[in-house]
Amino acid sequence: MADVKTDSISSTEFGKLFFEFKPRFIALAYRYVRDRETAEDLVSDSFMTFWEMHETLPADINVPAYILTSVKNRCLNHLNAQIRHRRAEQDMHSTLTRRLQADVRSLSACDPDLLFSEEIRAILKQAVRKMPKMTRSVFLLSRIRNMTYSEIAAELGISVSHVNFEIRRALNLMRSELKDYLPAVLITLILSSQW
C-alpha cells in the first residue's frame, strides 16, 4: 500500500488501507491515551483527514506513514489538552482550597458575641420594656443589680416564691423574643450574665 499514489487512490484501496492499518494504529494510540474509545476516534479522524486531503497531497507520499504521523500528532494534542485540563482543575482546586481555608480562618476568628451582641441587646431591652411592671422590676433587680431572690423580695415587699414566679415569667418572655436568634441554652446563658 505504501506505493499507492495519493492523487489516484480509489475508495476501495482506501478501504483496504483502513482495514489493514486501523487495528495497529488504534493499539499504538491506546498505548498513549489509555482510553479505547478515544484511541479509535483519533485513528478514525486521522484516516478521514487523509481521505479529505488525499488529492492535494504529494503523489509520492507514504500513505500509512502519513496517517500514522497524523495519529501521533492527534495523540500528542489530546495528551497536551489533558495536561492543560488537569492543570486548570488543579488551579481551580487550589483556589477553592485557599478560599475554603480563608473561610475556615474567618469562621474560626468570628466571635458571635461581637456580631450579634448589639442586636441581641436591643431585642433584650425591647423585651424588658414589654414586660409587666412587677416582672420588669424583679428581672432588673436580679440581672442588673445582682440581688438575690430574698433581697428582691424584701425590697419589693413580696414573697420569695413570687420573685421566683416573676423571674420565670421574665425568662420565658425573653426566650420567646430571642427564639429566632439563639438556641435556648445560649439564651439562658445570656440572660444569666450581665447585659
Rank of each mutant, 00 (worst) to 15 (best):
K5T: 07
N77P: 02
N146S: 14
S11L: 07
R136P: 08
E166Q: 15
E13G: 06
D60T: 05
R86Y: 14
F47Q: 05
R169N: 15
L57G: 09
R129M: 11
V163T: 11
D60Y: 06
I167T: 06
A109Q: 08
A29E: 00
T12N: 13
T188R: 08
H78P: 06
L57M: 10
I167N: 01
Y30H: 12
R84E: 12
A109S: 07
L186P: 00
S44M: 07
W195P: 01
A109Y: 04
F50P: 02
M174Q: 02
R74S: 11
R24L: 15
Y30F: 13
V160R: 13
G157T: 04
Y181T: 02
C110G: 00
P112M: 12
N73W: 10
K16V: 15
D35P: 00
P132F: 04
A102F: 10
Y32L: 14
R36P: 00
I152L: 02
A127F: 02
R87N: 12
H54K: 14
S94H: 13
T12G: 07
L96R: 08
N80R: 15
F165D: 07
H78F: 15
L124T: 06
L191R: 01
K130T: 10
F21K: 09
S137N: 10
A88T: 06
M131S: 03
A81V: 05
F25A: 08
E55I: 07
L191W: 03
L140D: 03
I61M: 12
Y30I: 00
R86E: 15
D113I: 00
K16G: 06
S176Q: 13
V43P: 02
L100W: 07
M53F: 05
M134I: 09
K130G: 03
R168A: 13
Y30C: 01
E151R: 12
L17I: 05
D60V: 01
E52Q: 10
M134F: 07
M134K: 05
K133P: 02
L17M: 06
A170F: 05
M131Q: 07
H162V: 06
T95C: 07
M147R: 09
M1K: 11
S8L: 10
T69A: 12
R105Y: 10
L124K: 04
K133Y: 03
L114S: 11
Y181Q: 08
Y30P: 00
V163S: 01
Y32V: 12
N80F: 08
N73F: 08
V138D: 04
M147Y: 11
S8R: 11
L189K: 06
S10K: 08
R36V: 00
A109N: 11
R99A: 14
I158N: 03
F14H: 13
R74F: 09
A2H: 14
R129G: 10
I167V: 15
E151H: 09
L79Q: 04
R175Y: 04
S192M: 10
I67L: 06
M48W: 11
I158D: 05
D35Y: 02
S94F: 09
K125C: 02
L189G: 01
A170R: 01
A81H: 11
S142D: 03
H54V: 02
Q194F: 04
I187K: 00
D7R: 13
T38C: 07
L107Y: 05
K5C: 07
Q101S: 09
E55C: 06
W51S: 04
D41E: 12
R98E: 13
L124D: 02
V71A: 05
R74C: 00
E119S: 08
G157Y: 09
I152F: 02
F21T: 04
L76R: 13
Y181S: 05
I61A: 05
